[in-house]
Simulated assay, not measured.
Amino acid sequence: MKRLAVYCGSASPEDPRYLELATEIGQGLAERGIGVVYGGGRLGLMGAVAKGAKDAGGEVIGVIPDALIKSEVANHDCDELIAVSGMHERKQRFTDLSDGFVTLPGGVGTMDELWEAMSWAQLGYHSDPVGLLNAFGFFDDLISFNAKMAAVGFVRPAHQNILISATDLPELLAKMESYTPHTPIFKMKAEDL
């Protein structure tokens, strides 16, 4: 994996562990020679990931909608800052530029990015690993919900291992590196659906 898209919040929670985690993830990726593709913002966890990676000598590519550049939240310290027209184009660029996805704690936008990466993997728009860093138990309920969707039958057996979760970066990256792509819906026969 040469580059990973990192999805995370643009907010700065009161609990300092979240910003510290984001900085450590950016640093950890850079130290492993993995470039960061992220939302292009300078605030919150986003900004901390980028700063951690840059401070450790890593590559940082930001992808940000024009409207957010105009709001003066763009991080102009990125190696490359790509302006796009909107969120759909932003997520497509994340997919095009990355070899996988890592999701850190965040809010609605972060969840949108995670679920779309999973949905696109399930369909066959990409075959890259989709990682979830479950630091501090933040995603416990989401992991349980994903398991419930599978148990009820809304996630096919072939797609139940798309979401890769771990509680720390080394374990998550190891799991992502050993990920074997599944059979996407686009390649399944009607009787398999």
Rank of each mutant, 00 (worst) to 15 (best):
D96V: 11
A83R: 14
V36C: 11
A11D: 12
W115N: 06
K148M: 13
V73I: 15
A22H: 04
P105T: 09
E14A: 15
A30I: 00
A158D: 13
L173D: 02
L123H: 09
E116A: 10
S119Q: 11
A50D: 02
V108W: 14
L169V: 12
A117N: 07
G40E: 00
Y125H: 14
T23Q: 13
I185N: 07
D15E: 15
P184A: 07
G57R: 06
G47C: 04
L68I: 09
F139N: 06
T23V: 02
L169Y: 06
L123R: 02
L45C: 07
L68K: 06
I61G: 01
I185M: 13
S12L: 13
P105W: 01
I25D: 04
Q92P: 02
A30M: 00
F154T: 01
M1D: 09
M1R: 12
V155C: 09
V37H: 08
P129T: 08
A135I: 11
D77P: 06
G100T: 05
W120T: 07
E31C: 00
S71M: 15
S12D: 14
V102D: 05
P16C: 08
V63Y: 06
A67N: 05
N75T: 05
P157M: 00
L123G: 07
D79S: 01
P184G: 13
V84F: 05
A30G: 03
A147V: 09
S85K: 15
